[in-house]
């Protein structure tokens, strides 16, 4: 008995040590990013010293004061607006699609589900050119609205996880409501939705984040329209060949500024995120 107890203690200590080492490995780049964002000199990407020799806050303040070329505050607002709009639209579209495929029965259901699944397997780049020209034809070229449409345009294809979640809600609940004379529309809004908090939050969270991290689609859509850039593209631009020397530390500062809210969101919503994706992601 005593033997197995010591064995367990040893195992626990080893686990904690191992976890600590892993945490250090995972956090080191993050810490490096933080340190770089407070580095004063040199401003370039390849400092000799791994820990900055001189420290400053100016990388942060200059993001908000020197806005002639890199208008960080404006890009931040752009991203916020696009993120809010597209996460509302995406969430609605995704949940509606998932609900239809999970709860409603109609002739085209299976073929549609398969087709949508297959569509997701094409690499997206090439079609971006066409998307740009379609948006231009509608008269939305290089606008924030077009960005919202691009981010939510594919929402239906992400029905997978949410459908998995809806599948776990017992059918008997719906049937009972139907006997009471509720329409399907009422069932969706008044019964299914309130039961689906985790998946709603999961969808909101993931769709809110995507405008903050995408730099490819936005560059295809915005091209030379600096005013309508998002933070991600703006930051990416700071590392372009001609800017990297002067802007690397500011890039780090900007990156920290967008990482903080996202991190807080994640930590706060972690529980829902996990239950959303595990309920949905694991199932067909």
């Amino acid at each position: 008995m005593k033997n197995s107890k010591t064995k367990r203690t040893v195992a626990n200590v080893v686990s904690h040590v191992f976890l600590t080492i892993l945490s250090i490995i995972w956090l080191l780049p993050v810490v490096w990013l933080l340190m770089q964002s407070f580095r004063e000199t040199p401003t370039g990407a390849f400092p000799k010293a791994i820990i900055p020799t001189t420290w400053t806050l100016s990388n942060y303040t200059r993001l908000f004061t020197e806005t002639d070329l890199f208008n960080f505050p404006r890009w931040f607002m752009n991203t916020l607006v696009v993120a809010i709009a597209s996460c509302i639209l995406t969430t609605i579209l995704t949940l509606l699609t998932a609900y239809a495929f999970s709860r409603l029965r109609f002739k085209a259901r299976k073929p549609l589900m398969n087709v949508i699944l297959i569509l997701g397997m094409f690499p997206g780049f090439m079609s971006m050119i066409a998307v740009y020209h379609i948006l231009k034809a509608i008269g939305l070229a290089q606008s924030l609205l077009s960005l919202v449409l691009v981010y939510s345009g594919g929402a239906a294809m992400g029905y997978y996880v949410a459908k998995g979640f809806f599948d776990t809600i017992p059918a008997s609940i719906d049937e009972a409501a139907m006997l009471d004379g509720a329409t399907k529309n009422q069932i969706f809004w008044q019964i299914t939705m309130p039961l689906s908090k985790p998946i709603v939050i999961y969808t909101v969270l993931t769709s809110f984040i995507s405008p903050w991290v995408d730099f490819i689609f936005v560059s295809v859509i915005m091209k030379d329209n600096y005013q309508n850039y998002t933070v991600a593209l703006g930051l990416y631009q700071m590392l372009a060949r001609e800017n990297i020397d002067a802007y690397f530390t500011r890039f780090c500062a900007g990156a920290v500024l967008i990482a903080i809210p996202i991190t807080l969101l994640f930590i706060k919503m972690q529980k829902y995120y996990v239950s959303g994706i595990t309920a949905g992601g694991a199932k067909g």
Partner: peptide
């Protein structure tokens, strides 16, 4: 570990 997910 989640922190590293949250950084773009």
């Amino acid at each position: 570990f989640i922190i590293t997910i949250a950084i773009p």
